[in-house]
Design a protein around this nucleic acid. Sequence first.
RNA 1: GCCGAAGUGGCGGAACAGGCAGACGCACACGACUCAAAAUCGUGCGCCCUCCGGGCAUGUGGGUUCGACUCCCACCUUCGGCACCA
Length: 824
Amino acid sequence: MSGYNPAEIEERWQSKWLTEDAFRSEKDPSREKYYVLEMFPYPSGKLHMGHMRVYSIGDVLARFLRMRGYNVIHPMGWDAFGLPAENAAIENKVNPSVWTAQNIEHMKKQQNRLGVSYDWKREVNTSAPDYYRWSQWLFLLMHERDLAYKKKAGVNWCNDCETVLANEQVEKGLCWRCSSVVETRELEQWFLKITDYAERLLNDLNLLEDWPERVKIMQQHWIGRSEGAEISFKIREFPEEEIRTFTTRPDTLYGVTYMVLAPEHPLVNKLVEGTEREQEVLQFVSKVRQESEIDRTSEEAPKVGLFTGSHAVNPVSGEEVPILVGNYVLISYGTGAVMGVPAHDHRDFLFAKKHGLPIRVVIQPEGENLAEETMEEAYVDPGVMVNSGPFDGTDSLEGIGKVTAHLEKEGLGSYRITYRLRDWLISRQRYWGAPIPIIYCDHCGTVPVPEEELPVELPLEVELSGNRVPSLAHIPEFIQTSCPLCGGAARRETDTMDTFICSSWYFMRFASPDYTEGPFRAEDVDYWMPVDQYIGGIEHAVLHLLYARFFTKVLYDAGMTGAIEPFSRLLAQGMVYKDGAKMSKSKGNVVTPDEIVEKYGADTGRLFILFAAPPEKDLDWSDQGVEGCHRFLRRIWRLIDECTAQFAAGNGSPAIGEAETELQRSAHGAIKKVSFDIEERFNFNTAISAIMELVNALYAYRQSQAEQNYAVLQEVLEQTILLLAPFAPHLAEEAWSVLGLQGSVHEQKWPSYDPQMLVVEEVEIVAQINGKVRGRITVPAECSEEELIAAAMENDRVKELLEGKEVVKTIAVPGRLVNLVVRG
RNA sequence: GCCGAAGUGGCGGAACAGGCAGACGCACACGACUCAAAAUCGUGCGCCCUCCGGGCAUGUGGGUUCGACUCCCACCUUCGGCACCA
């Protein structure tokens, strides 16, 4: 053995693991399974530190749990559809499928160089026909279950990506992928009815005890459940029409002084048709409709409203109030109409002030007397109902229910729950995705592609001369087809599916990656699902994680899986920074896994990334920190090297004295801590520091003892290597064989500790006076509280300080401290 | 604006259930080895003082407690999410 040469060691073990299929997992109902999964990557071709972090975390768990005796499944695959492939195709004049395949090959090599223990026999690729066939099949399942529908609606359009986006994919009015401003376009698109599952998606968050609270709160927020009432207002000028409005505050119904419709509201045209206001209102409507989401909803955007000339009739008071059209009312929420109660709603207050609309107080706070003229802001808290006819004097919180009940009885309204969540827009006007399996026939209408004709294959020959890969709408051979029902000429749907569909069920495909009769085999999914530990970035808190939960629930309802939720435990890992900023080319602060592996080896990189911060926190990359971890691994290497040389040269001492017991105790303490830190807390940083302490103890033992017990040394070395195995698998594997041990280290049982070994006879405890440390005493571990106090009083320093003082109280905490409270 | 998370040495971070604040690592200083350097090994390392001792320290100010990084109240700062959702 010579110096630590990670390049040589790592390559050797990696190729052995690969050729032996060392991490193959087989279904075995007699064993307890454990499903460890990291969010699969988009094959960009470039592995970055964020990837390295998520894989390192997952791999520690997978390796640890295998050693713990679980039947671990740890698969990997590719979220391979998506726009970057199209951009690269144009740029490099290479077919998207070819580009993607090359990237996958390259990234897989990079992953293997990290020493990650995947079962590659389960690899999936969402852009492969044998995968997207089932994505299409699942779309048809949704269609059959009335969960997929097409409608014309104002949708988010990204000019740069030349496609529409789901609501979740718009961040602050910008495209989540390219950050360009999102516009609204009126288009006929496919949607999935995720809103049908809003209530369950919300309620079942309670089942996810091991999810980070912040992710659950973000989803809760996104779903945005509001309870209230839907109320109908008649229109004075059009008695045959009515305006339905949603409110969470039916108790303020008597305070309505106007009504506002969204510009897109279907009644707007009728109300102004043929009136002097028609032109002005319609101009305003078309202007607002052209505005981007960001212009329309930004804080600075003034609340503009125009009178329509018509009046709404308050269903309880009969009062007539003006109907306006306002830019701040959204057609997609509630009913697209708002009853204006300026006295008790912030926005209504601002709007009324600006447009000179009356304000009427109908809720009075306890012990106050609000007056319309002097109010400077809306009063939104509970109080007592006033100016509210028969409800005067009612507590406003009770009033909500009472007014609703009254409306229901009179047929004027009803209790209603409204969600912020919108249906999932899944059409994409892009080439590189799974085609939506629908055919349009002039005679038969919209016809789903029959199951046996799946997959609807993506034509692989594409035109690469323009500055965009043309969408399927430009490929006549693809469009032209025949109707499955009547056999007549028909057209294929040319939109592809949102790639988030492909990633909403891949974790189930891993259970039966080669299955050809369905998306997965029920018995496989029953055994492996749910994912016990899912790991990935927080950026998917509402995107992928919400969609995957939705898909799982639909599959559950269809009887295809027993899993109600896909991911039992979720670990949202933090980001990787360098010098306080996100790594980016423009800042020139990028460190790649490739460089690190080349310079120090994968073990060093993994160790550093796990040691520098707990997994859920952001991590600041430090080149010097990496050096430190490398030094630690070299230190272990040298230890093994020197010890094996020693063992070969002689027998050492058979004696087991205090030093040996001490060393063994350190080892057992480390086993306890490392096990606990991995299993219960995911605190890999402290687990690693415990291993470092153990190595320090080994060095100290060898340094201090001229006569060493080789049997004890060997035993503790073995334990150290086992503890290290999940973190630095190559070095551990090599050390295991150098120490002359049989088999692979990853097939060994995780070491256990003997609680007896941790029992000490004497402990040092602290003697405090008035909470300040004044001395240390060594006492037998079994010492009673009385004995502890007596011992503390005997301490010289304590005695000195107690002179002339009165001890008024004593506190003894066995094993920790004694505190004497004194006076005088 | 609303919701959430976090503030601990020069730095990354420890402190599991209120009990010795700063584990482990980095940086730094000193010593050993060396012709020298690197590597390695060892020692020290929160701040302050009148330094055998003591004081002050976990964002700030209060509180509870024998005892608070930990619990409670108020505030400040940073980061993240939502952003006219009626």
